[in-house]
Every structure is written in C-alpha cells, then in structure tokens.
Simulated scan of single mutants.
Amino acid sequence: MAITLAVAITATGLLLLGALAWLGLPSTTGQKPTVAEFLDTLKIVLAVVGGIGGVVALVVAYRKQRITEEENHRARETARREDIKLYVDRFDKASGKLGDASAAVRLAAVHALAALADDWEGGRQMCIDVLCAYLRMPPDPEPDREIDPGAHTAWQAMGEVRTTIWRLIAVHLRADAPIPWHGADLDFTGVTINSDIDFTYTVFSGQVSFDHARFADGMVSFLGARFVGGHVSFEHAAFSGAMVWFGSVFAGGHVSFGHANFCGSEVWFRGAIFADGRVSFDDTAFSGGEVSFDHVAFAGGQVSFRNANFSGAKVSFTEVADWSHPPEGLPPDIQT
C-alpha cells in the first residue's frame, strides 16, 4: 500500500509539473496556449489524478478488508480452540465418571457423553467409541438375590447403565433422529446381549460390528431397520437364546452373517426385503432354534447361503413374496 501511495503521489506531481511546463510552451501556431486549451489540459490532469486516487482508494479498501478478514479468522480460530478445550474438558469429566462405583453417576456420565456427541461433531465418533467400549466390557456375574439382596439390587442398577447406552444409540440411529449418528462406526464386537434392545426403524450406513456377539436373552428388534450402506457384520455371532427380529430392508452395503451360529434363538427374517447390496450367510450354522424367512422378498441384490449348514434348526421359507433374485447356495430341498 505504501508503494502504491508513493507511485500515485509521484505520478500526480509529474502530471502537474508537466501541465505547468506545457502551459509555458508555445503552441504549434507559435502562440501560447489559450484559456480553453489550459482548461482542457487541466481537465485531463484532474481526471488522471482522480483515477489514481480511485486506485489508491481501492487499494486502501482492499487492505482494510484483508485486515478485517485476518482478524475475523484469528477470532474464529481462537473461538474454535476455546470450544474444543471446553468439549475436551466435558469429555474427560464424563468418561472419567463411567467407572464410578455409583450406578447413578454412571448414568449421568452416559447421558453427558451422548449430549456431547450431539454438540461436538468433530468428537462424535470418540464419544460413541467410549459408549461402545463400555458395552464390550463383560458385566459382573449376577449375585444371588436370596443370599445378598443388596448386591443384587446394585447389579440390576448397573445393568440399567448398559440398557440406557443401547437405548441412546438406537434413538440416534432412527431415521427421524433430530441429530442422527448415521454413518458412525459402532463396535459391538463380543458383546453379550441379555436384555431388550429396540433398533426399530433405524438406519445402518456405517461400519458396524456384532462379530462374536452373543444374543443370549431378551428381545432384539430390527423391524423396519434399513441397511443401506457400509458394512454390518454378525460374523461368528451366536444366537443362543434371545428372540431377534430382522424384518428389515437390505438395500445397500454388505451385511454378513458368515460363520454365525443360530443355535437356540427364535430369529425372524419374516417380511424382510432384500433389494440391493450383498447379504451373506456363507458358512453359517443353523444348528438349533427356529429361523424364519417366511414372506421374504428376494427382489434384488445378492444373497448367499454358500456352505451353510442346515443341521438342527427349524428353517422355513414359507410363502416367499418374491423369488425374482433367488439366493445362491440354498439347498434345493429347503426352497418352497
């Protein structure tokens, strides 16, 4: 800006000096310039000076704008760092209380982490990871109610913490969730499920692992859930006692039940729609319990039962709604 101002002042001075010098010279006719010629020259000089002044004004305005933008950027960065500092402080306090001896304190920590995940998009996955890690930790064995009723009550209270985590995750996976966690990674590897979980009308579009999970008790509902992307894995999961409903829509991504063992649960795919993506039951063992594919629509995508073992469970494909894209590897004697 200083250079521009110096050039502008120098150019203005030279123009004025040149105009004054020219006015002192004779014209082409040998006469001194007339008043009209003087005024025309003065107009030209003033126009040029005005143009230079305009350029200077533009430079000054541009520089002010740059300074303002830099100051605003610094202010935003400062505010962002302060926000992150506050978020990290909230995270440390909440996660630290998950190990408290009181179930009430743990419940407060769970709600605090879920609220932080809603507020802090950049740290959302970190909060979800902590909640999932809590579910992966093995619960304490159930005390005998008759021998120690107080310990049994405390154990039930701790179970409520797990139930609350499942509920909060499911609520945020609903299609109409105000602040959805769709697309987040959910690691439930090795969890033991022995209570009711409601994943009704949820959306699974990220990386979700139920690998080696044990569905031991309770009712787990995926009714109306939509698997639309990512990879959802139930590989090596054991369906050993819970009632599980997969009346879902498989419309994209990859859902794998590879090497899972249906060994004692009632698992219902009744009314499910296989529309797109890939669903694999490869190397799955149907060794006990009841598995229903009644009224299922195999309307698209790729469904595979390669090397599946139908040795003990009651598996039914009654009144299949749509066979237009039949599964691969399904034994001929089981198709109806």
Rank of each mutant, 00 (worst) to 15 (best):
A151S: 09
M137P: 01
V203D: 05
W323C: 15
L223P: 00
D333Y: 07
H152C: 04
P138S: 12
L223S: 15
S95G: 03
A251L: 06
E71Q: 12
T202A: 07
A251M: 05
D100E: 07
S205Y: 02
P141N: 01
G288N: 06
V35Y: 00
L20F: 01
L23V: 02
H231C: 12
F305V: 11
V171W: 15
G24D: 09
A242M: 03
A6S: 13
A242H: 03
N307I: 06
R80G: 00
V105H: 04
D322P: 10
A175I: 10
V60T: 14
L39W: 12
N307Y: 02
R214E: 13
A6E: 14
A238T: 08
R136E: 07
A2G: 09
S233P: 05
D40I: 13
A2C: 06
G18K: 03
H152D: 00
P331Q: 10
G13S: 12
A225Q: 05
V161I: 02
W120L: 08
A213S: 12
D196A: 11
M126H: 04
L168K: 13
Q302R: 15
G50N: 06
D333H: 14
F215I: 03
G264A: 01
G252T: 01
L46S: 09
F274A: 03
A225T: 15
T153I: 14
E70I: 10
F210W: 07
G252C: 06
L107A: 04
F257P: 05
G241M: 06
E146T: 11
R66Q: 15
A238F: 00
L5N: 05
S311M: 10
R80Q: 10
L20M: 13
F298C: 10
N72L: 15
A6D: 13
H259A: 14
D217H: 10
A237V: 08
N72M: 13
A157V: 05
L46D: 08
L107R: 13
S27E: 14
L173Y: 02
V249N: 12
F204I: 12
A308D: 14
R174T: 13
A308Q: 09
G183T: 06
D92A: 07
F234H: 09
I84Y: 07
A75I: 03
H111V: 11
R167N: 14
S311V: 13
F293T: 04
G230Q: 08
V88L: 11
G150P: 02
R63V: 04
G159T: 05
K97G: 00
D211R: 15
E146M: 10
Q65G: 04
E160F: 00
K64I: 07
V45L: 11
M158S: 03
T34L: 01
D196T: 06
D119Y: 04
F210D: 07
A151T: 07
G122E: 10
